[in-house]
């Protein structure tokens, strides 16, 4: 029972502001939409024991992650009256200050997009097998863990 083709959520490297801007522009033809809401995850330059994080190297169990993104998408559409939803996540190195997660939800009305966006982002953090190696300025590393 093959369902709709699984979307690939992953992009190599950081998500650029041009890409995000173009995504917004593409929705100008969808005139039933009255409200968009966007979440952008940005890599923080945390300082741990005096060492600064310069970036995160993301890897994923891609087949399972794309299945989980699909499940989250289906759950969210079942729960909220959304017109559309887009999710992009980085793989590979994303430097501090760059964007690693872009979630974009749209609906006729504003209240729904506030709730739906939080729901999607929390589900991604909890359910999707993505792994992050936090690289320090001296090239040592530690493994990121969502809390």
């Amino acid at each position: 029972m093959e369902k709709t083709k699984l979307k690939n959520v992953f992009v190599q490297g950081a998500i650029s502001s041009e890409f995000i801007g173009n995504s917004i522009a593409k929705h100008q033809t969808k005139t039933t939409i009255g409200a968009h809401n966007i979440f952008l995850g940005q890599v923080r330059a945390d300082v741990i024991d005096g060492k600064t994080i310069t970036g995160i190297d993301y890897t994923a169990y891609e087949e399972m992650a794309n299945l989980k993104f699909q499940e989250i998408r289906e759950r969210t559409f079942a729960k909220f009256d959304l017109t559309c939803m887009h999710i992009y996540h980085s793989l590979g190195t994303v430097n501090a200050g760059e964007i690693c997660l872009f979630v974009f939800v749209s609906s006729p009305r504003r209240r729904i997009v506030f709730e739906a966006l939080e729901y999607v982002v929390e589900a991604i953090k909890a359910d999707v097998p993505v792994f992050g190696k936090e690289i320090f300025e001296d090239e040592t590393h530690q493994w990121k863990q969502n809390t």
Binding site: Y58, A60, Y61, I124, P129, V130, F131, W143, Q145, N146
Partner: peptide, 10 residues
């Protein structure tokens, strides 16, 4: 079979 350490998406 996959052994998956704590997730760190986003």
């Amino acid at each position: 079979i996959a052994l998956l350490p704590p997730f760190a998406g986003g």
